[in-house]
Design a protein around this nucleic acid. Structure first.
Lengths: 132, 132
DNA sequence: GTCCTTGCAAAGCGTTTGCACAGAA
DNA sequence: TTCTGTGCAAACGCTTTGCAAGGAC
């Protein structure tokens, strides 16, 4: 299921906890620390939130995942793949992936600013909440 | 200096604290609560952070300011005017305003999602930090 | 009098830190 | 042995809440 070479390529030693957390990220879009913790707790009964934080910050440091800052309080994490855009519903708080919006970075470079990364979050009302 | 009709139009009763905080927002880009508190403390010696939070959430509720969520922990606030883009330096943490990036929202509407607002944050290294 | 603004103190909550235990190499 | 992963408990920092005092009306 999970290719361990990916860990090796990023300089991460595998462990059951790390593998489970990574698999969870593969199957769930931008979860919070608490979501990961609550869902993995049954499989890994001795899991602690500290460990989830530790593993995620290791993944982040090794450029395996990126963090996502939204209106809500908690940090969210997602696996690094092609950039895309997020939609956050202001009613239910759910976060959806959206097609990537292409940006022109030339003006940024002109000002002597170096582009590294970007967060683009569209806020509004999701289709489900709109029907209510 | 400050047009009190603006407050009235938004259903906000003026007070010295509210006026000072609003003026601070007029003259400073996206400050944090602590920055506002520290800077206004000399003028308003009995000011408390709770009051800064109260006033800002009133302003936000009355659509006078919007909130801005960045990588750093604290919430930032800015006066509502034409939308623009923010650049956050990953070295010094400073936040700069940037030219507005125009977005095409048609695809969002197609999915039954209603656009309300957006946050666009570019991360990188600012011109000052780049020289070091 | 009532209503509203203000602000102290405490609680809340996501996150980080200190540290120690246990397993791997 | 040393190094590393894990996890409890406490600390930390930003924000919110409870509540009471004082002012506006």
């Amino acid at each position: 299921m999970l290719d361990l070479n990916l860990f090796e390529n990023h300089g991460i030693k595998p462990s059951i906890t790390r593998i489970k957390i990574y698999e969870y990220l593969l199957n769930h879009d931008h979860p919070t620390v608490d979501e990961i913790y609550q869902e993995l707790k049954p499989e890994l009964p001795t899991l602690s939130k500290t460990t989830v934080y530790n593993v995620l910050s290791l993944f982040h440091e090794k450029a395996l995942v990126s963090t996502l800052v939204l209106n809500h309080k908690e940090q969210r994490y997602e696996i690094n793949h092609q950039p895309h855009t997020h939609f956050e519903c202001i009613r239910c708080g759910n976060v959806y992936d959206m097609p990537y919006v292409q940006i022109d970075y030339r003006s940024i470079a002109q000002d002597g600013f170096e582009y590294v990364n970007h967060d683009f979050v569209v806020k509004g009302v999701c289709a489900t909440c709109k029907q209510e």
